[in-house]
Design a protein around this nucleic acid. Sequence first.
DNA 1: CGGGAAATAT
DNA 2: AATATTTCCC
Length: 312
Amino acid sequence: MREEEEPSWFARFDEDLPAPDELMPLSQSLITRDLAAAFDIPTTHGGGGPLSGGADGAGGAGGQEMNGGASSAAGSSGGNGGGNGEEPARTLKRPRLVWTPQLHKRFVDAVAHLGIKNAVPKTIMQLMSVDGLTRENVASHLQKYRLYLKRMQGLGNGGGGGGGSHSSGSGTDAATEHLFATGPSPFLPPGRGPAVADPYTPYAAMPSHPAAHHHHHHPQQIGHFHHPAARPLGHYGAGPGGGFDHGFLSRAVASGAPVGPPGMHHRMVGGGAAMGMMAPSSFAEELELGSRGGGGGGGRRELTLFPTSGEH
DNA sequence: CGGGAAATAT
DNA sequence: AATATTTCCC
């Protein structure tokens, strides 16, 4: 009989939310300026060294990043050269966004808070307050996220066939299910069971956040970016055996001009009028890495970002 | 305009 | 191969 499993599913939002620690760094990651751009990837942020994790310097580790330098075509000044005729401008695009676990968590959190109902790229993006994040980015990720959930919900059958050893198990976390089943953010009353009575939540339009009216002292600067010059770093550390991970800053996204003059390009819309900015509450960030190691004892089998690929 | 899905590139 | 980026469609 499992009726209530995670009463504090989103409840933690109320408490954990206050974690400006991570949020700040995000914006802070903007690096000082060209320092980063000029050099290469000082993402190592000097502040905290302990979390360097491992992929820091790796220059080559990931290997698949192309810096931009090629804004040539892009253009600003018109100079398009002209031509190449094929698709030079295409391949040379901005660096790939690195969805770091933290960033992803943030994404999930945002979606959770909004509820599948409002879990739309635009809202999520805003809720995340992540600079540089674009709708496209979120939209794309959202797809993946949805797929991931679908994978679990819909098909949990492992079996199948025969075989055997597949244990299915729907390891689907209750949260996952709830995520889709739950509407917006029906904060459950403290100490009270989830009295989810009406399927529809009385929500007019923009979800107001309770934490919004608390202390307004944080000059959250969202909407204005400084120098979007960052480059994704390596990836997470590897896992087998070692087991170290944790902690990396997640700030990515760059603009068209990598090493150029302050040619700031603005993105995002201002919007307008119908845009009610909601208070960017901080999100709780926790790194849950099932480091397996051997055995551990636990019983956690899952988690790798998204098991996009359960098996080939 | 916005969101969703598919296609494509890395 | 996996993931992210980009594009097209609705």
